[in-house]
């Protein structure tokens, strides 16, 4: 296999890893409701799994100070006062993994008050691991580049 052909194959493999659709089972969208307890400096539950297309309702209940919940990627948020609850409803139309985090300064560890929302499967994680495998393959296939 010539150097150029191998390089072309590598680029094509990279494109496949990046963009090939992963197999998904068609699931009818549902309404999903989560009650999330927010306290310094954690959410409970802190990991949410929904399917693409689900209508997600989050009831944020703050048990100590004012807390917020901002969802990365969706750019939506809600705030709850101490002892109160607030509701956020959205359609989970973007698949992938997203952090949600407190948006109201709530104490020292506020910047690290973080949860995780996964919509469908975390495709990007699998694609990233695929890229890592390609990097190792590229290293072996192109020793001239690797050893220059």
């Amino acid at each position: 296999m010539s150097y150029r052909f191998a390089l072309l194959l590598l680029v094509m493999a990279g494109l496949v890893v990046a963009f090939a659709p992963l197999p998904v089972q068609p699931i009818t969208p549902q309404e999903r409701t989560f009650e999330i307890d927010a306290h310094q400096f954690a959410y409970s539950p802190s990991e949410l799994h929904v399917n693409p297309g689900d209508t997600v309702t989050i009831q944020l209940v703050s048990t100590d100070v004012v807390h917020g919940l901002y969802v990365d990627g969706y750019d939506i948020s809600v705030e709850a006062d101490p002892g109160q609850s607030a509701t956020l409803t959205f359609v989970a139309d973007k698949p992938g993994s997203f952090r949600f985090r407190c948006k109201v300064t709530c104490g020292a560890m506020h910047p690290f008050m973080i949860g995780k929302l996964t919509v469908g499967t975390n495709d990007w994680l699998y694609r990233s691991i695929g890229f890592s495998l390609l990097a190792i393959f590229a290293f072996f296939r192109f020793p001239r580049v690797a050893k220059d």
Binding site: W124, A146, K147
Partner: peptide
């Protein structure tokens, strides 16, 4: 820049892996 965060992190780690192999 939350939309480019994950690709940027992947790029950094994959480059790091190749670099370490080398």
């Amino acid at each position: 820049l939350t939309t480019i965060l994950a690709p940027a992190q992947t790029l950094a780690l994959v480059v790091g892996l190749f670099w370490s192999a080398r």
